[in-house]
Every structure is written in C-alpha cells, then in structure tokens.
Simulated assay, not measured.
Amino acid sequence: MIQIEINDPQYAQKVKIAQSLYQVIDPELFVNIIDLGLVYNIIYTDNTITIIMTLSTPHCPLGDAITSGVNNALSVHFPGHAVTVQLVWEPKWNFEMMTAEGKKLLGIA
C-alpha cells in the first residue's frame, strides 16, 4: 500500500495523483488499484510521473487494461506530463496489502 509522507516536497502532487488513481478499477475485481494495494510508489517531477505498481498476478490477463487506465486517469489531471507505469513483482502482492475499504468491497473481514 502506498504511503505518501507529509514532508515529501511533492506531497500535494502525489496526493492528487493518488486521488486520480482511485478512478482506475481492476476489471476483474471491480475495486480501484489504490484500495487493492497495487500501487507501491509515485515518482513525480515537473514533466514526468512514474507509477511503480504491481498486478495481482504476473500473468494478469487484464494488466494492459489497468496500465492503460493509469495513463488515461493521469492524463486528465496532469496534461503535458509523460506517464510511465513500471510493473514490479517484488514485493509480491497479497490480500494483506489492501486497504480496509478494499477488503470491505471484496467482502474480506
């Protein structure tokens, strides 16, 4: 699960990016990628945004749809920024990475 430190110089921009990513829904689970805990880090500069994230499995059949969703969501709020999605497989995603809201949406206690 992503943690944005309040003393981060890009705090406001990273929070805005994270809020935009709530719009990106995993098409199989119908939960956004933030509440699923798929986003590990956000790197922001004046003209680039890099999202470091994972998928629920390395062979996720809808991975392209999710990464395209990230690009689409960020292009609305950050026009002119180059957006890169970097998929990583460590740490391996598991249900414990989900937020309380994500677990609630999936009916996990």
Results as ranks from 00 to 15, higher is better:
residue 109 A to Y: 13
residue 64 D to V: 10
residue 17 I to H: 06
residue 74 L to V: 00
residue 22 Y to W: 11
residue 102 G to R: 12
residue 66 I to Y: 09
residue 2 I to N: 00
residue 69 G to R: 06
residue 34 I to H: 03
residue 54 T to N: 03
residue 70 V to W: 05
residue 26 D to C: 01
residue 18 A to I: 00
residue 27 P to N: 07
residue 54 T to M: 02
residue 92 K to C: 07
residue 29 L to I: 10
residue 9 P to F: 05
residue 32 N to D: 13
residue 38 L to T: 04
residue 60 C to V: 08
residue 40 Y to P: 06
residue 51 I to H: 00
residue 63 G to A: 15
residue 38 L to W: 03
residue 63 G to E: 02
residue 71 N to T: 11
residue 5 E to T: 03
residue 83 V to I: 15
residue 19 Q to R: 05
residue 5 E to P: 02
residue 39 V to F: 00
residue 80 G to W: 10
residue 31 V to Q: 00
residue 86 Q to S: 15
residue 57 T to K: 09
residue 58 P to D: 02
residue 47 N to D: 14
residue 71 N to D: 12
residue 63 G to V: 06
residue 54 T to A: 04
residue 68 S to Y: 08
residue 31 V to T: 01
residue 67 T to W: 10
residue 67 T to I: 13
residue 6 I to L: 08
residue 94 N to E: 08
residue 101 E to G: 00
residue 49 I to N: 02
residue 28 E to R: 04
residue 28 E to A: 08
residue 92 K to V: 06
residue 60 C to D: 07
residue 27 P to F: 14
residue 5 E to I: 13
residue 100 A to D: 12
residue 33 I to T: 01
residue 63 G to R: 03
residue 4 I to S: 06
residue 83 V to P: 01
residue 52 I to Q: 12
residue 6 I to P: 04
residue 21 L to I: 01
residue 44 Y to L: 06
residue 43 I to Q: 02
residue 11 Y to F: 15
residue 1 M to G: 14
residue 24 V to W: 00
residue 50 T to V: 15
residue 65 A to P: 01
residue 90 E to R: 14
residue 47 N to V: 08
residue 62 L to D: 01
residue 31 V to E: 01
residue 21 L to V: 04
residue 104 K to F: 06
residue 3 Q to H: 09
residue 21 L to R: 04
residue 86 Q to W: 05
residue 104 K to A: 12
residue 104 K to L: 09
residue 4 I to L: 09
residue 79 P to Q: 14
residue 68 S to C: 11
residue 5 E to M: 10
residue 38 L to V: 01
residue 99 T to E: 05
residue 13 Q to H: 14
residue 65 A to F: 13
residue 75 S to V: 08
residue 74 L to W: 10
residue 79 P to I: 14
residue 98 M to Q: 02
residue 93 W to T: 03
residue 105 L to Y: 05
residue 47 N to C: 11
residue 46 D to T: 13
residue 106 L to M: 13
residue 1 M to T: 12
residue 16 K to Y: 13
residue 70 V to C: 11
residue 18 A to R: 08
residue 100 A to T: 14
residue 86 Q to E: 13
residue 103 K to F: 06
residue 18 A to S: 10
residue 23 Q to A: 13
residue 11 Y to I: 13
residue 90 E to N: 12
residue 72 N to C: 03
residue 12 A to N: 11
residue 27 P to I: 13
residue 38 L to R: 07
residue 68 S to I: 07
residue 50 T to M: 05
residue 73 A to R: 04
residue 87 L to H: 02
residue 55 L to S: 02
residue 10 Q to G: 08
residue 84 T to F: 05
residue 108 I to V: 09
residue 41 N to L: 07
residue 10 Q to Y: 15
residue 97 M to D: 02
residue 60 C to L: 07
residue 59 H to L: 11
residue 11 Y to T: 11
residue 7 N to V: 14
residue 59 H to Q: 09
residue 94 N to F: 03
residue 28 E to P: 04
residue 32 N to V: 04
residue 41 N to M: 07
residue 6 I to Q: 12
residue 90 E to L: 06
residue 80 G to I: 14
residue 27 P to H: 10
residue 19 Q to S: 11
residue 59 H to K: 12
residue 39 V to A: 05
residue 52 I to D: 02
residue 7 N to W: 06
residue 66 I to K: 07
residue 91 P to M: 03
residue 99 T to D: 01
residue 39 V to S: 05
residue 13 Q to E: 15
residue 63 G to D: 04
residue 88 V to L: 06
residue 103 K to H: 11
residue 63 G to P: 00
residue 58 P to I: 08
residue 88 V to R: 13
residue 65 A to D: 08
residue 27 P to L: 15
residue 76 V to I: 15
residue 96 E to Q: 11
residue 33 I to L: 09
residue 96 E to R: 10
